[in-house]
Amino acid sequence: MKNKKIFSKLFMICLMIFFYMPIVYTVVFSFNSKKSLTHWSGFSLTWYEKMFSSRDMMSALWTTISIAILATIISTVVGTITAIGLSKSNKVLKNIVERINDFPIMNPEIVTAISLLMLFSALGVQKGYITMLLAHVMFCIPYVMLSVNPKLRSLDPNLADAALDLGATPWQALIKVIIPQIMPGIVSGALVAFTMSFDDFIISYFVTGNGVSNISILVYTMSKRINPSINALSTIIILIITVVLVLINIIPVLKKRGGVKE
């Protein structure tokens, strides 16, 4: 028994080293003073200076963050509204929409990417920021609906009817009764949408144009040559994601504590 415990501990430690080595490596070498990804030659902030003064990197950072925020807001609103609408529609229509929603989820991303590329070209749309945003909204909505749907299914349909009987307008019933009940689903949907958009590479890479890049595209095109500024940029991203994750995991705990005190 003892041996088994030691074995599983060792196994998990090796796995964690495997998982975190590249992340630690990126952070460490972003502070390297020389242009090498293999030899440590002293601490410096050169690559951060280079990064902050590089217009490409700053605009890629801006594109990534602004698209992620816009795509999250649009896809959460549209996805929630559609999910509510479909829950009141007939089963056939609901099934058809859900099947079609499965396409971007189940298809390899590169297939979705080329299909959108051909669409935008066929329609003669200039590729750039707008096409990237449209594509992100397109692949985020199905995920929002996936996380809202279970909440809607467990929603008591009588509640909204009761609100209407008591004189609420449909709009009021929606805002005051339905939305608050499905809020946890909406929030987790928004979270999924944000990370999907923030991390996306393949679809963005195919539908962008006009020199508009997000961080992933920039890393991909810059990776042909050694460029430790990428490490600095990566470190910033790692920092942002870690802070967001910690906040998400800590806020509910704090809220619960606050609740207990009351």
Binding site: Y20, Y25, L37, S216, V219, S223, N231, I237, L245
Partner: peptide, 24 residues
């Protein structure tokens, strides 16, 4: 879960340095 939240390109790029002939 944490690593999956960090951009795939960024994490793959890190392996480029680690696996070099004179890498870690």
């Amino acid at each position: 879960t944490i690593p999956t939240w960090i951009n795939m390109l960024v994490r793959t790029y890190a392996w480029m340095g680690i696996l070099q002939d004179n890498g870690i």
